[in-house]
Nucleic acid binder design. Structure first.
Lengths: 114, 114
DNA sequence: ACATATTATTTAGCATGACTAAGTAGTGGT
DNA sequence: ACCACTACTTAGTCATGCTAAATAATATGT
């Protein structure tokens, strides 16, 4: 199966991340894994793609991140846990509507019989 | 209705143009109008967006363009008529399959219940 | 002790391609 | 003469996803 990547994702990545967080808070690495799993082999985001999206969404007030604290017996570095902000949930709804319009309009054009 | 533009179109514009030409040859301006009409007010391509796509597709051998000739009683400057090349028709089919995969995978992620 | 693997984050620089904005050109109407 | 409409051209900008490498913390194996 061909990978979905590059330009095709443009303008949709934010919605994908927000939708992922709508299912529950998660840290960056986890979001990457969830998206990879949800993509059933057709999606393969790299860190350099995802993290800047998180910074952008946090700076825009769409998501809220905080460093994980507490007695951690796990291995590895600190994680930043993100969750949807109220604005983010609103934004997600808006983006979902736009997505539906997008696939209807563009699909109607692209799916023309050859 | 919000306009579809910018990054959301990335990676889909080529397919849109090929699909438009699959319905019959046309010159650039006409393709713009057809896309505008097909977009039902949600699409508004400008020349600076469309023409470079045509040049790119022609250079890649996906479409063939030729200057309109003959006794023309019509008004206005010369037009370049484009039609789908064999490669272009093949490419369109491939892009349509990718489109279906795209909306299935990305849609499955974005349409998560809020 | 040391290397290696895994988890997790950061970031500088690049590439793609849609957009902005302005220009050229021909024809018809006022 | 000027404007509107049709039609094409193109230089420069910008957003954003990707490449690639570095840093960090801990566990496991030798």
């Amino acid at each position: 199966m061909k990978k979905i990547s590059g330009n095709a994702l443009r303008g949709h990545l934010d919605a994908m991340v927000l939708a992922t967080l709508a299912r529950g808070e998660a840290h960056g690495f986890e979001i990457m894994q969830r998206l990879g799993a949800a993509g059933r082999g057709a999606l393969e985001l790299k860190e350099g793609t995802l993290y800047p999206v998180l910074y952008r969404l946090e700076a825009a007030g769409m998501i809220v991140g905080k460093w994980e604290t507490g007695a951690t017996e796990r291995r590895g570095p600190r994680r930043r846990i993100y969750k949807l902000a109220r604005n983010g949930r609103r934004d997600l709804k808006r983006r979902q509507e736009q997505w539906r319009q997008f696939i209807q309009v563009i699909g109607g054009i692209v799916e023309a019989p050859t």
